[in-house]
Design a binder for these strands. Structure first.
Length: 314
DNA sequence: AAAAGAGACAACCGCCACCTA
DNA sequence: TTAGGTGGCGGTTGTCTCTTT
């Protein structure tokens, strides 16, 4: 088992940070930036490992951290994001300025989970709990075999076989949009062009970052996308605004670069026609299409709207 | 008032992915 | 190509404080 080199070092302090240590770390990073974390402790005069310094900075000393209790809006947003992203705390934190992944994780485990259960909602699946699993009956079901596999402390069963792929849209911080579906403990979700949402499963991973990337399905034993598969974007302004397609090393993966100007000025305001010209067999190429192997219009504004709520950082 | 329990928060641990020599 | 170093992440544990008995 590999360990961080710093973990071998002896006589390093552990446990809670003293105000003096905080002062040293804050002073050093304010003056010099953190640079290589492994060298920070020595340069800052601390008997800590680099990882510990990094964590302390990120979770406590960073000047842009928001202090105080989470607002109800923040908590609602966390629940919404968790429904799509699962326990990807860092990605959830990326959408809550000033909040850390650790903070959100703690809030979730100590507070939100309980609130959801009190409302009769399974915090794992975000679906209504079966009556027998609701909090009011916890003690009655203590010996149930339906304990969550995630933690023995949970009494609540996951919805069976609900770990299908899902699709998530994201408007990234600046000018990029991503679309991705991947394994996650939520229902397979399909965002349709009419704005409705249905729950048809699909497997092929599609990412638009500023690029469209097709990835083989997670299961290598199933059919994969060949090197000839590709995505064609036929927005009238596309040809002059996209870069050349480039094949990456990964078999079956193709990437098309979108220019910043295109993303800024065109993509988010004009309809884009996205079309698959290949047969993806059982793997669904374009889940927003009514017929998932056929081309359809994708409206960037819808993408942007959905992207704001659902996301997966690539 | 003291002990026990619960909740909130901080920090550590192990793992993984990426980078570089 | 590979092994070591590093950053980052999520799960877990530790610690402190507040509440209840």
């Amino acid at each position: 088992m590999k360990r961080h080199s710093c973990c071998y070092k002896q006589k390093l302090r552990k446990g809670l940070w003293s105000p003096e240590e905080d002062g040293k770390l804050l002073s050093y990073i304010t003056k010099h930036g953190h640079g290589c974390w492994s060298s920070v402790p020595k340069l800052a005069g601390l008997e800590r490992c680099g990882k510990s310094c990094r964590l302390r900075w990120i979770n406590y000393l960073r000047p842009d951290l928001k202090r105080g209790a989470f607002s109800s809006e923040e908590q609602d947003l966390i629940v919404e994001l968790h429904a799509v992203l699962g326990n990807r705390w860092s990605q959830i934190a990326a959408r809550l300025p000033g909040r850390t992944d650790n903070e959100i994780k703690n809030l979730w485990n100590s507070c939100i989970k309980k609130k959801l259960r009190e409302k009769g909602i399974d915090p794992i699946t975000h679906k209504p709990l079966p009556e027998i699993y609701k909090d009011t009956n916890r003690s009655d079901n203590h010996n149930s075999t339906s304990f969550s596999s995630e933690t023995n402390q949970d009494f609540f069963v996951k919805e069976p076989s609900d770990y299908s792929d899902y699709l998530a849209f994201e408007k990234l911080n600046t000018n990029s949009v991503s679309i991705v579906n991947s394994l996650s403990p939520v229902s397979p979700t399909q965002f349709n062009t009419d704005g409705s949402v249905s729950t048809t499963g699909f497997e092929t991973q599609i990412c638009v970052k500023p690029s469209i990337i097709l990835l083989p399905p997670p299961d290598n034993t199933s059919s994969t996308i060949s090197g000839e598969d590709h995505v064609q974007v036929t927005d009238p302004t596309w040809e002059s605004n996209c870069g050349t397609a480039s094949h990456l090393d990964n078999p079956g993966l193709e990437e098309i670069k979108w220019s910043d100007e295109y993303l800024n000025e065109s993509l988010l305001s004009n309809p884009v026609y996205v079309k698959s010209e290949t047969d993806f067999n059982a793997n669904i190429a374009f889940p927003w299409s009514q017929n998932q192997n056929q081309a359809c219009d994708v409206f960037p504004k819808d993408l942007q709207r959905m992207a704001f709520s659902f996301g997966e950082t690539l």
